[in-house]
Design a protein around this nucleic acid. Structure first.
Lengths: 131, 131
DNA sequence: GTAATTAGTTACTTTAATGTACCTACTTGA
DNA sequence: TCAAGTAGGTACATTAAAGTAACTAATTAC
């Protein structure tokens, strides 16, 4: 395991020298799937890798892994690995991540309001293409 | 002017048959630059095309146009064209767009909190790559 | 002995998004 | 008469992102 050649890290604390605070956070959240993954975890409290994958069938393991790593490095998600067999890895919000919960709820509130739909939980979702 | 071959429209109202309200809105907002453009307009009230372009120097006219059209079609931005010479086009929030203002402020609040920075206005921003 | 399970990783290909440069119309001012 | 300014549109090349398939390791159930 070498994370030596890693070039980008997404820890928001490293953006502290940016003049615009907005940049770092938007850069982190507005990638494809990212916010949607957070919304899944917000609804479920904590989730295993495979569980997230099942709820978002169109995301590939590769991309899901990338996003989870990014959010972990940003200090938003906590990754807990239990070395049982089979392996069990659980993702949940860090304290910092919890600060996003209001935001996520508000997005959902607007979304449901605008579509005129109730908030039907994620298991009912089947997507063509998502973000 | 033929908008016949247009295939995608982003009006959130057309997502009303989706089971998950969250999809449409995230799909709309989490594309590159989109939310950042909204944040610019939220700060400035109303903006001309060239003004936005100057504040976000790294975005190309092509992409900026795409995003503005998308947001217009979604019913979030209002495009007002004055046929003076030179042409003057102004973008501002619709009533629906105004409902995003709290959300944008909240993102900015979190961002400033996390980076430990004050909210320095956009003119001080020089970005390498943004979203 | 073999398949199944979990959470990924890696290499390679393909697709989608973006960048770049050039073009438009119209009028004003030098 | 010619450049400047505005808000884009268009064609083509390029790049970055994503898809895909195959692979890993360890243990358990069949």
């Amino acid at each position: 395991m070498n994370h030596i050649e890693k070039k980008k890290t997404f820890d928001v604390r490293e953006y502290s020298d940016m003049r615009c605070a907005m940049h770092g956070l938007l850069n982190l959240l507005t990638g494809p799937w990212t916010t949607y993954i957070l919304w899944m975890i917000r609804q479920n409290g904590e989730m295993r890798f495979g569980q997230i994958k099942k709820q978002i069938p169109l995301i590939s393991a590769k991309v899901l892994t990338e996003r989870l790593r990014m959010l972990e490095e940003a200090g938003i998600l906590l990754r807990v690995q239990e070395n049982t067999v089979p392996l069990k890895v659980t993702y949940s919000f860090t304290r910092r991540g919890k600060e996003l919960e209001n935001l996520l709820d508000e997005i959902n509130n607007l979304a449901t309001k605008w579509t005129g739909n109730d908030d039907i939980s994620a298991k009912a979702c089947h997507l063509d293409k998502m973000t």
